[in-house]
């Protein structure tokens, strides 16, 4: 079942001088098994939006439907843990949420909270840790002995171990070096291939082009466009002050230079290389 927002408003600190309307009438559908990227400027309401998916924030008005569960502004939410279990949310810089004495215990913390016994939780933790590429000999170490990149992987494993049906990521590659970012994104791609819905907030249009199946563009707390990456970069991305992905920029220059090929298939450097190679052989 998809995630559906109907006319959702959210106001921070209502009725105070600090009042701020972060969401103004949001209507979206996030399809099952999609890889949805949410893009937009800082302060456009992206982070506020994703915190509604697992009921961390409750709408000021409007309804949100996740699976067969509904959140409305007026009713009190029952079974809030079901929402938390359904959608795993990875915050920005998640490495700051680690606290346990060992890596495996920290990752098992989520499953334990959702009622797994210690052994099942540790099994899930080990599986998730291997998935994110943490070596077995680090499992018993303190998370504070690890490097920044490793800590982030452990924190993400902590969410993956909960086996959520929807994985929500807020800028997961911020502050990572290009290679670390690439590995991180490949990991999420793999999880997506395994059938998990992925919702990703990002500023990096290269990532959007490479991985996303759908794109939601936000501005000033409202949804201004719902599309797919190729149509976005083909069309009016400039109207929303978005950057063009490097690869797409290159392809455009090539096409403007007179080289004829189908722009609809370029997502990775490999795609581009194939096209150029094919053209070369044609002569």
């Amino acid at each position: 079942m998809p995630i559906k927002f109907s006319d959702v408003f959210y106001v921070y600190s209502p009725k105070t001088p600090f009042q701020f309307e972060a969401l103004r009438g949001v209507n979206i559908d996030i399809k099952d098994h999609s890889f949805t990227a949410i893009v937009g400027h800082t302060g456009s309401g992206k982070s506020t939006l994703i915190q509604h998916i697992n009921a961390l924030l409750l709408p000021t008005s409007g309804t949100i439907q996740v699976d067969d569960m509904t959140i409305t502004a007026k009713e009190k939410v029952k079974h809030i843990k079901k929402f938390r279990k359904h959608a795993g949310l990875v915050f920005q810089f998640p490495e700051y949420q680690l606290f346990e004495e060992s890596v495996e215990k920290d990752v098992a913390f989520g499953p334990r909270n959702f009622g797994d016994d210690e052994k099942t939780a540790l099994d899930k933790a080990h599986k998730a840790l291997r998935e994110v590429g943490i070596d077995d000999d680090l499992f018993k170490r303190s998370p504070f002995e690890l490097s920044g990149g490793q800590r982030r992987r452990v924190a993400i494993a902590g969410i993956i171990a909960m086996e959520p049906k929807v994985l929500v990521l807020d800028e997961p590659t911020a502050g990572l070096d290009p290679r670390g970012a690439q590995e991180m994104m490949d990991l999420f791609d793999k999880i997506h291939q395994g059938g998990t819905t992925v919702v990703l907030v990002t500023h990096d249009m290269n990532i959007v082009l490479r991985y996303a199946s759908d794109v939601i563009v936000m501005k000033d707390g409202a949804i201004v466009k719902v599309t797919d990456p190729l149509s976005l970069f083909e069309g009016d991305y400039e109207d929303y002050n978005l950057e063009i992905p490097n690869l797409y920029h290159f392809a455009k220059l090539l096409k403007n230079g007179g080289y004829q090929f189908d722009m609809r298939n370029i997502r990775t450097i490999e795609d581009m290389a194939k096209i150029i190679k094919g053209g070369y052989h044609r002569g």
């Binding site: 915190q51 697992n54 961390l56 843990k81 938390r84 279990k85 795993g88 949310l89 915050f91 998640p94 700051y96 949420q97 913390f109 989520g110 909270n113 959702f114 902590g158 969410i159 909960m162």
Partner: peptide, 13 residues
């Protein structure tokens, strides 16, 4: 608040 939300996402009540 940030950490509370992060831990709440991991099922902490």
């Amino acid at each position: 608040y940030r950490i509370m939300k992060a831990q709440a996402s991991r099922g902490v009540d």
